[in-house]
């Protein structure tokens, strides 16, 4: 079998407009980053709220958050994506449905679905990290805060959360990286993010080894850079005299 190696393929014309294959990869990376960043913001905000709810004495609130986590962690991401993309729009009010299905560009409606899906999916994981972080703090910390007259919101705001978030930076880093990797499911509902562009390049050019190699290199470099970024964040918020853990 003859395979025609050609590493110069990325600079060749795709035959569509003036684009070269490299342009496709750049567009794809753009979508991947756009999906992951917005989904991460949703996950961070919602996940933190849920994580706090999980640790509250109020049984109803912690139960709701617990149910959320169980639901979103035990249904495969792809099933969730299909639900958001194919099913949920049919249950929207008439006017919204028309807007979502007809007025929006297909890429935009796919983008909205995947961002909501990935954001809510990741929120369940963030919730568990936040909860673990809060529960890892010694009970005396909240006691001391209450003893000084702090209200419950103040105890979380000034004492528990600043410490919990510092503790959970390493596991949160891997959740952050997961969002980028998981965003590749968007290719299955037609969003032309990095993986979809890679497949398209492999099909158009027949240079599938080169295409997939470039894609893995891009993911690899992206991963390393994000890890460096989070390492920098961790360093910035490091507290003198406190190595990794709290307590005595």
């Amino acid at each position: 079998m003859n395979y025609h190696w050609d590493w110069g393929v990325f600079f060749k014309s795709t035959g569509i407009g003036h684009e070269i294959y490299l342009d496709w990869f750049i567009t794809g990376l753009g979508w991947t980053v756009a999906v992951a960043m917005v989904a991460w913001v949703i996950a961070l905000i919602l996940g933190s709220v849920l994580g706090v709810m999980r640790t509250l004495p109020n049984k109803t609130l912690s139960g709701v958050a617990g149910g959320y986590v169980a639901l979103f962690r035990n249904v495969p991401l792809l099933v969730q994506l299909f639900l958001w993309y194919f099913l949920v729009p049919d249950f929207l009010p008439e006017s919204l449905q028309v807007w979502f299905k007809q007025d929006l560009k297909p890429a935009t409606s796919a983008y909205i679905s995947v961002v909501v899906c990935l954001g809510l999916f990741t929120a369940a994981r963030v919730c568990e990290q936040v909860r673990t972080g809060i529960e890892a703090l010694p009970k005396g910390q909240s006691n001391a805060a209450y003893a000084m007259g702090f209200t419950l919101p103040q105890v979380y705001r000034h004492v528990l959360l600043p410490q919990a978030f510092r503790i959970i930076i390493p596991p949160m880093t891997s959740e952050f990286l997961n969002v980028f990797k998981n965003s590749s499911v968007a290719s299955l509902i037609g969003l032309m993010e990095l993986l979809a562009q890679t497949k398209q390049t492999a099909e158009f050019s027949a240079n599938l080894f080169e295409a997939f190699t470039l894609a893995t290199v891009i993911y690899f470099v992206l991963n390393m850079s994000l890890m460096k970024l989070m390492g920098w964040v961790e360093n910035r918020v490091r507290v003198p005299g406190l190595i990794g853990s709290t307590g005595k």
Partner: peptide
């Protein structure tokens, strides 16, 4: 009003419980 009452009573703990951050 518990926060108010607690703010008027000082407490010192076995493990100090300074806020490490």
């Amino acid at each position: 009003d518990l926060p108010k009452l607690r703010s008027r009573v000082g407490m010192v703990f076995q493990h100090f419980e300074l806020f490490p951050h």
